[in-house]
């Protein structure tokens, strides 16, 4: 085997090892913090990636109105104005997936946060122009999740 062949084999191996751990599922993290603190960490992690929070959708309160029991539960919506505006104009079929959101709920003394992998959208909307955007969202979401998981 010459050097370049060997190099190619090595590259393949390295790429295989660096492959992402989960593919077809959700991005999830558990926080050791109680729900209110985890919610604060989540919101500041979202803002740290340059997003504006547009709405904190109440869920448990709405259930309680009909006397259904549930622990604290919210969906946090967020986006960047220029990005949402540009995407809605160029790719209106993407609108139902905008703005981005993360679900957070209490579980005992912990909180769980989760969202879909933005990467999944590449499969739904295969336009190569969108790929770098989905990749960036993926990286941002992973960072936000890591921040929530690791804050003590």
């Amino acid at each position: 085997m010459n050097f370049l062949n060997r190099l190619a084999a090595l590259l393949l191996l390295a790429a295989a090892c660096a492959a992402p751990a989960a593919a077809d599922d959700l991005l999830m993290a558990r926080s050791d913090l109680m729900y209110p603190e985890a919610m604060m960490v989540l919101q500041s992690a979202i803002k740290a990636q340059g997003y504006t929070i547009t709405r904190l959708q109440q869920v448990n309160e709405n259930l309680a109105k009909r006397h259904y029991k549930s622990d604290m539960y919210r969906v946090v919506f967020f986006g960047k104005y220029d990005e949402v505006k540009a995407l809605a104009a160029s790719h209106p079929e993407l609108i139902p997936y905008l703005p981005l959101n993360i679900t957070i709920f209490a579980e005992g003394n912990n909180a769980i946060v989760l969202t879909a992998h933005p990467r999944t959208l590449e499969e739904f909307f295969p336009d190569p122009k969108l790929k770098p955007i989905f990749e960036r969202w993926e990286a941002d979401m992973v960072k936000i999740m890591d921040t929530v998981r690791e804050s003590k």
């Binding site: 539960y73 919210r74 679900t103 989760l114 879909a116």
Partner: peptide, 13 residues
């Protein structure tokens, strides 16, 4: 919604 959450608490999405 209540039924869905009982089946899978992750349905917030």
């Amino acid at each position: 919604l209540n039924q869905a959450l009982a089946i899978d608490p992750r349905v917030g999405m």
